[in-house]
Amino acid sequence: MKKNEMQEMNGGKLIKMPKGQKKTSVKKDNPWLNNWLFLAPCLLTLALCAGWPLLKTIYFSFTDAALDSLNDFEFIGIDNFINLARDQDWWIAVKNTFVITVVAVPLETILGMMIALILHKNFKGRGWMRAIVLVPWTIPTIVSARMWAWMLNDVYGIVNELLIRVGIIDSPIPWIASNTLSIVSIILVDVWKTTPYMALLLLAGLQSLPQDCFEAAEVDSIPFRKVLMKIILPLMKPTIIVAMVFRGLETFKIFDLVYILSSGNSATATMSVFARKHLVDYADVGFGSAAATALLFFIAFLSIFYISFNRKKLNKLS
């Protein structure tokens, strides 16, 4: 199994069937029917829990549906979208989402790369290190949000206390109460939570690089900085870009952390929070769906980028 996985990482080959040749020699099987029979439950599930709700949401965004009257609504064209474009809170949410993504993802990439390089090295206790690094990823988002909310508490929080003790600040900082700082806190916690995942992705990329490059560099006693800049980073570029886009997509949807770590006002909301607030709290399904659809458009734009990068991998699969 292990060996196979490695082969997989190095882009193992797949059975290639010449076109027109029958799949198996067993006559009883009808390959076409069998393939789709095997796929049917999965496709049905996807259609039921992704396809239908998605289409319905887009449909709702052109109506004035309310939460308590989901069957009784009128078609109002693009009014919701016009209102959305005029809504200042929406643009604040868009800005917040962009700021969080643009700051958090590069930070995660840099720190993740650092951790990946550490884990790639062969040293005593590497297994332990790997387990420790995984811990933030394991902790449920809500739990980490609450843990950090406690640590960042302006009066009793340990973070302020430590910063004061070290002498970096004189008086406690309102990490969560202040609008600007709560964005900083959200970024901080998001980076803490997702860097491990980034590190794992980059580590997988590192391990699939031709290892003799590193050996050759070591034999020639080339300083590590040069190896990093001239060998590792150029070779890792595709992996890094894909991982960053992937993380960017995830960060764009950020909800849980913001829900807990900001005081719930519109100054710190992200697009997801905004959409849900209108959808559920204000029971305005039409307008909320319009916001969700707008978010979908942003994501779709990024997704096309992401999927086109993954195409290479898909071709490997096929």
């Binding site: 796929l39 496709l43 996807l46 039921l48 829990c49 992704a50 239908w52 709700p53 998605l54 289409l55 319905k56 949401t57 449909y59 709702f60 549906a65 939460l67 989901l70 997509l249 764009f252 949807k253 909800f255 697009m271 997801s272 959409a275 849900r276 959808l279 559920v280 399904v285 909320g288 769906s289 916001a291 969700a292 659809t293 978010l295 979908l296 994501i299 990024l302 997704s303 992401y306 999927i307 993954n310 898909l314 699969l317």
Partner: peptide, 23 residues
Amino acid sequence: VLMIALGVTTLPQVAVLSGMFEL
């Protein structure tokens, strides 16, 4: 099929929220 699955992973949860609610 693989593409569709990949596409679904990128879907934001709020984008299916109202449809799912109705379902």
